[in-house]
Write a protein that binds this DNA or RNA. Structure first.
Lengths: 171, 171
DNA sequence: CGTAAACCTTTGACATTTCAAATGTTGCTC
DNA sequence: GAGCAACATTTGAAATGTCAAAGGTTTACG
């Protein structure tokens, strides 16, 4: 908790925004992480209580909702940032619930395409509407201009991180 | 030799036509979530490759490192935002690895206090130093002034969210 | 053709996550 | 003291998450 005291006082404060102590990036990261956890947990709780769904299922269905013809599992994996092995089980459970359908196209039998059923589309659009409202509620006290700034600046963070990954990987 | 599976980003695509005006909060949320996932996965990968540790273990040890006398499991649960049941298993595995010690104080036998062993302290401080450097690297392209702004504004988001939770919960 | 490389998905072992219910302990009240 | 509410942790079932390795299927090349 305690910051190391500096013997020389004034100079540091002048030099490029050295707010209070270093580790700015670390502090930002910790705050991002805790805030994201907080929001995730709230959304999870509401999805569960009001729709009996889970957040990963919601995310996966959101991708399929945008692509009505369906998506290959590998593509789903990239878009949801979920590992391939994980997508398999996720789709299995959604299929068991009648929300998603799995098809192997004639052209290439390596591939499995998942797409929403009619029931899945109905179910998702109800959740999506509620989901959007929850977020507006939760962020109600934040100035819309700040929301916009955050959106832009977090984009810069995301971009920087993407360029400094250890496993070569980018857009 | 299988490559690590997860790949590129996206996940911001739930929004339909919202490029220009509405659903600002939703778009911010999706960007926060994907950015946080991206950073988490990178940290996870490096913790695993360079230290053989997991992120939740690192988080838990970070709390114990700040409180050398140890923490009760319930307190650990709050600080790490991990459920009680989960803390039990995490501490169990860390204890099996000799990084953490569990003690039941004489005063109150309901309580279990976890604290770092000497080995745990050594191990953690090496990881913490590396961890801080990784974050500086990943955010290297972001203007420090922007990092500060983000830290402040995300604080505002967190505060707003805390005031609009359905369950009883705050910080 | 036949084989190897590349591709896509699944499987398996384990760690983490949540919720709900069960267990054990303490403190308070009557 | 006996009973009970409050507290702290553990347990159990189900889902999600990772990585690594194994299955099938094309595709390309000699």
């Amino acid at each position: 908790m305690a910051e190391p005291e500096s013997a020389t006082v004034d100079l540091e404060i002048i030099v490029q925004g050295a707010q209070e102590g270093k580790k700015l990036e670390l502090r930002l990261w910790l705050r991002m992480l805790s805030t994201t956890k907080l929001i995730s947990q709230e959304i999870r709780r509401r999805l569960r209580n009001e729709f009996g769904a889970t957040l990963p299922q919601f995310d996966l269905m959101a991708q399929l909702y945008r692509e009505r013809e369906g998506l290959r599992l590998g593509e789903l994996s990239k878009r949801t940032m979920v590992t391939n092995g994980n997508v398999t089980g996720l789709v299995e459970r959604l299929e068991a619930d009648g929300l998603v359908l799995r098809v192997t196209p004639d052209g290439d039998r390596r591939v499995t395409v998942a797409k929403l059923t009619a029931k899945g589309e109905t179910s998702f659009s109800a959740m999506a509407a509620a989901h959007e409202g929850w977020l507006r509620d939760m962020m109600a006290d934040v100035d819309p201009a700040v929301v916009s700034e955050l959106w832009r600046d977090i984009g810069a963070v995301k971009s920087s991180v993407s360029n400094h990954l250890s496993g070569a990987d980018f857009d």
